[in-house]
């Protein structure tokens, strides 16, 4: 089988059989691309996961692009990325046509009232896991608390400030601080 077709079919399979997003997908990608197909090594897989975590976008997309590119250049990258997106695209497109009518049924509306709470808990759980993994330096903890309070205020009072603005400020703040620290150190001053 030509590699392009092989890539496409395998990533369609990965896209179709992973529920619940990112991290579930990574284990299947690892299974298919490292163990079965040997397209990439385990180390490469670990590296791309780390890179995926510190670059924006869905993690599974980062992985698909990486494996596709390794195997067949730009075309491979496009095919693998396309393949992993197609199954969910089709499913959600169908859902979007029917969802509105579906939600008007009383019992479904009640079920979704419960689901809304579950989604809140899932988001809290994601935050909890990230906090557990985080290196708890004072600066990081400070930024975390400030961002959390700011975001709550933005939500509660419907301020017209985007979360992107918060992220940009945190990034710039941290960069400025680092640059100052660096300059001071180079001049032989006391490290902060």
């Amino acid at each position: 089988m030509p590699i392009i077709l092989d890539l496409f079919l395998n990533f369609v399979k990965i896209g179709f059989f992973t529920f619940g997003g990112g991290y579930a997908m990574i284990s299947l990608i690892e299974d298919v691309c490292v163990s079965k197909k040997k397209w990439i090594t385990h180390e490469e897989m670990m590296n791309v996961t780390v890179i995926a975590e510190s670059t924006p976008g869905p993690i599974a997309i980062n992985c698909a692009t990486f494996v596709g590119y390794k195997q067949a250049g730009i075309i491979g990258a496009i095919i693998a990325t396309f393949g992993i997106v197609v199954p969910s695209f089709i499913v959600i497109f169908l859902v979007s046509i029917f969802l509105e009518n579906f939600l008007e049924i009383a019992i479904v509306a009640k079920a979704f009232a419960g689901i809304r709470i579950a989604v809140g808990i899932l988001i809290l759980n994601a935050a909890y896991k990230m906090i557990k993994k985080m290196k708890k330096q004072p600066l990081a903890v400070g930024i975390l608390i400030c961002a959390c309070v700011a975001m709550l205020l933005i939500n509660i009072f419907s301020f017209n400030v985007s979360s992107i603005m918060l992220m940009l400020s945190a990034g710039v703040f941290s960069l400025v601080l680092f640059t100052i620290k660096n300059t001071v150190n180079n001049k032989g001053g006391k490290p902060l």
Partner: peptide, 28 residues
């Protein structure tokens, strides 16, 4: 420098996620 930006960005994102979860539950 890229790592410096990330080290500020990451806790900020966690804070935003935390706030969103809290807000979603409070409003329910």
């Amino acid at each position: 420098y890229f790592q410096a930006v990330l080290s500020g960005l990451k806790p900020c994102i966690i804070g935003i996620i935390l706030a969103t979860g809290i807000y979603m539950i409070i409003t329910r």
